[in-house]
């Protein structure tokens, strides 16, 4: 098991002991009626194995991006446990990364896990060149030799099918689709075991979207990392993922093989979602 998420919740607000039990899909709300706190993620458990591709779907505000940020430790969970392969305590037992010291979390974020954001400004440093952005991550993963860093950065620029002559250009000199490619190169340059993608192609035109998704799929097959991809587009989910998680009001509504979710959805909300495909 590469990633094991157990009962993770995120509550914004004062929170009370009824927040989790009075919200979720069965109550059709994410705001606690007792204390008014927003329950963004409510007791979610899921796991990802090596080479597996998970999709998370759900409407806006269902908590899917928050869940991704909780896994990547961009934000801190209110409760629950997250285990990541190789993160162990002194006795060699799996250790909850929520209780690990910041140095261990930082190592995990800079080497083993990478995140690709919908907004390239969150994933790229716009004060650094494209090559500088990639180099930043390669250095973060432990490489210190200049020649290695430069040649690795060039290699990843090639992998995203971009002219290597543009390595020293700054992100704002690239189009939206190209910025996403640079984010992909940066994220993968540490050879992570898990790639998290938050709506990576939303807002891009369809031809660019197809190219980016094909690139992601090709690199995944080449490098063999696991992925969790958040999207509200069932076409993207169908194209990329093996397993799909459906979320609503912060709770997990349904979990299954992607073709099963699309062809034999069980939950009323999933059936509504699937019947809404254009």
């Amino acid at each position: 098991m590469l990633l094991d998420v157990r009962n993770v919740s995120k509550i914004y607000g004062t929170s009370c002991d009824q927040c989790l039990s009075l919200t979720g899909v069965e109550h059709d709300r994410a705001i606690c009626p007792e204390c008014g706190s927003v329950v963004a993620v409510n007791s979610i458990s899921l796991s990802a194995r090596k080479n597996e591709i998970l999709g998370i779907v759900g409407e806006s505000g269902s908590g899917k991006s928050t869940l991704l940020q909780l896994i990547y430790q961009d934000i801190r969970a209110s409760s629950g446990e997250i285990f990541f392969q190789g993160v162990t305590d002194k006795n060699g037992q799996p250790s909850n990364i929520l209780h690990e010291p910041p140095s261990a979390v930082s190592r995990l974020r800079s080497k083993e896990m990478s995140m690709i954001y919908q907004n390239p400004r969150l994933g790229l440093n716009f004060l650094f060149s494209a090559g500088g952005n990639i180099a930043e991550r390669i250095i973060g993963a432990g490489e210190r030799r200049y020649d290695e860093i430069r040649s690795n950065a060039l290699d990843y620029i090639r992998r995203i099918e971009m002219e290597t002559s543009r390595i020293d250009d700054y992100p704002e000199e690239f189009s939206g689709g190209q910025q996403q490619r640079i984010q992909i190169a940066k994220a993968l340059s540490s050879s992570p075991q898990l790639l998290l993608l938050d709506e990576p192609t939303t807002g891009l035109d369809v031809s660019v979207q197809a190219k980016i998704l094909d690139l992601i799929k090709e690199l995944q097959q080449d490098m063999g990392f696991s992925m969790i991809i958040v999207s509200h587009d069932l076409g993207v989910i169908n194209h990329l993922t093996d397993i799909t998680v459906v979320m609503k009001h912060g709770t997990l509504v349904e979990y299954g093989l992607t073709d099963q979710i699309l062809e034999d959805p069980q939950h009323p909300y999933t059936q509504l979602l699937v019947s809404s495909i254009l």
Binding site: G256, L257, D259, Q260, E263, D264, Q266
Partner: peptide, 9 residues
Amino acid sequence: LKAIYRTYL
């Protein structure tokens, strides 16, 4: 066939 392939539960 879909049930055997687990597309259908």
